[in-house]
Design a protein around this nucleic acid. Structure first.
Length: 476
RNA sequence: GGCCCAUUCGUCUAACGGUUAGGACGCAGCCCUCUCAAGGCUGUAAUACGGGUUCGAUUCCCGUAUGGGCUACCA
């Protein structure tokens, strides 16, 4: 069918009618991985033939999302809107060859037909009237300026699609219509542009969403009409929301951009998406980009749809944060760190929190506490950890810790435990209020690491503020 | 309605006729522990249903059910 010897050429062809979707990102990723694995070429093509719906800034968003994910293409981006001449030439060839024909019904007339068929419970099909107009008459009417569309003359027989994921799929001729290639205003339509471009770009493999499987017989017929080899197809199962409906904006966080803003690392999102419909064949879950590029294969792609599980994405992101160098994490946190602490403090804070933050947003928040004193104390924490005696106990502890000169974990812990013992209370009675005093929250990194990292001046100031605060609000 | 696709733990998936149906997320418990995590250990939970084919079906075939897609002068 196609030459397996020459390297494949694949493409990702999004329509700029929305920002990049996780489903689109996965399609792009699989195309890229396949191209890398097979030493082929990955092409980016923007399908902006729908002038009403396509918006230029959305193309930019798609490009930037792809760049963020590291989905680099070898050729492109090509914009269909600037390839109109190509489509015009192709349609003329098709008409001249008799593979396509002009049809002069108006949209309104067709609408009436469709409604009639609907009412009668019949499946609507175009009458095919345009097929019977002689080429001469067709040319004459077109020259006279009569409005018309151009339709493809579909072949009479069953169309067979050999899908690399689904196997052989047959489409009976009754199911296919002479569909429109060019609108009456001269605009070429999606299916037509896709095939002309795939042919012109010598695309060998089409990896795309399952939603296009039913369109594929149209494309096969079009490639035949164009007189070019039919590429191989691989249709990927849809990505679903947790309600098992096709993932959409309704589900929230369907766009790559939203995950970026939520503090998900591009490496983690790519890893997660790679495993949504593909598996390396063993139990590995965390794969490097190199491993994916080396091991990806179409025959390990599953056919069924997959539910996008944000919980697992978060887990995977946490895995990446746990392993990433602190300097790198700090750089990734930058967008959320308006007022970062000194670099050395920030890096140490990251080490303290790398197993506690699932996203860079959470990490940034943790790091920020080392830069600025807590403005509020967690209300539940105050209620739970501040008892009538707490202010007094903390006051005594404060005196003792203020005398510590070697401000490191060992001496600090010793000071706290000694103070607890001296007061005849458990260490926890001091530990928990201290954490609340220093960070404003009741959970976090091991306390003495926090105290040490904060430094004497800052730690004492926060403790004093806290003691003042609880003394003031305590009933006397 | 017509045509097409899909169906293994709640979720992502492995097992390409023979496995105690494996791993991961989640959840639960235990260990560790100043809290919360992380980590370790243990547990929970699946072949949609009905027929075939076969010595033997998660695996192949046919129905049914459920979900999804397409059926535009959208993409």
């Amino acid at each position: 069918m196609h030459e397996s010897s020459s390297p494949p050429r694949v493409r990702f062809a999004p329509s700029p009618t929305g920002s990049l979707h996780v489903g689109g990102a996965r399609t792009a990723l699989y195309n890229l991985l396949f191209a890398r694995r097979e030493k082929g070429t990955f092409i980016l093509r923007i399908e902006d033939t729908d002038v009403e719906r396509s918006r230029e800034e959305l193309s930019g968003q798609i490009l930037s999302a792809m760049e963020w994910l590291g989905l680099d293409y070898n050729e492109g981006p090509f914009y269909q809107s600037s390839r109109m001449e190509l489509y015009r030439a192709a349609i003329e060839r098709l008409i001249a060859r008799g593979s396509a024909y002009r049809a002069f019904e108006t949209a309104e007339e067709l609408d009436v037909e469709r409604k009639k068929a609907d009412a009668a419970g019949r499946a609507y099909r175009y009458s095919g009237a345009g097929r019977d107009i002689s080429p001469d008459e067709s040319d004459r009417r077109a020259r006279a300026g009569e409005r018309h569309v151009v339709r493809l003359k579909m072949p009479a027989g069953t169309i067979v699609v050999e899908d690399l994921v689904r196997g052989r799929v047959e489409f009976p001729p009754e199911a296919l219509d002479d569909f429109v290639l060019v609108r009456s205003d001269g605009h070429p339509l999606y299916h037509f542009c896709v095939c002309v471009d795939d042919a012109e770009m010598r695309i060998t493999h089409v990896l795309r969403g399952d939603d296009h499987l039913a369109n594929t017989p149209k494309h096969v017929a079009l490639f035949d009409a164009l007189g070019v080899p039919v590429p191989a197809f691989a249709h990927l199962g849809m990505i679903l929301g947790t309600d098992r409906k096709k993932l959409s904006k309704r589900h929230g966080a369907a766009a790559v951009e939203e995950w970026r803003e939520a503090g998900i690392l591009p490496e983690a999102l790519v890893n997660f998406l790679a495993l949504l419909g593909w598996s390396p064949g063993d139990d590995r879950e965390i794969l490097t980009r190199e491993e994916m590029e080396r091991e990806f294969s179409i025959d390990r792609i599953g056919a069924s749809p997959s539910v996008f599980d944000p919980e697992k994405l978060l887990w995977m992101n946490a895995q990446y944060i746990a392993k990433m160098p602190a300097t790198e994490i700090l750089a990734r946190c930058a967008p959320w760190l308006a007022a970062p602490p000194p670099r050395e403090v920030a890096l140490a804070a990251i080490e303290l929190h790398r197993t506690r933050a699932r996203t860079t947003v959470e990490m940034a928040r943790a790091v920020a506490t080392y830069a600025s004193d807590p403005e509020i104390y967690e209300p539940d924490g105050l209620k739970k950890q501040v008892k009538p005696d707490t202010a007094a106990e903390m006051g005594k502890f404060l005196e003792r810790i203020a005398a510590v000169s070697d401000w490191t974990v060992g001496p600090l812990e010793a000071a706290l435990r000694a103070s607890a013992e001296e007061q005849g209370i458990s260490a926890g009675k001091l530990i928990h209020p201290t954490r609340l005093a220093l960070t404003g929250v009741t959970v976090g990194a091991p306390l003495f690491d926090v105290v040490a990292l904060l430094g004497k001046e800052t730690a004492l100031r926060r403790l004093r503020n806290f003691v003042d605060r609880i003394s003031a609000s305590e009933p006397t």
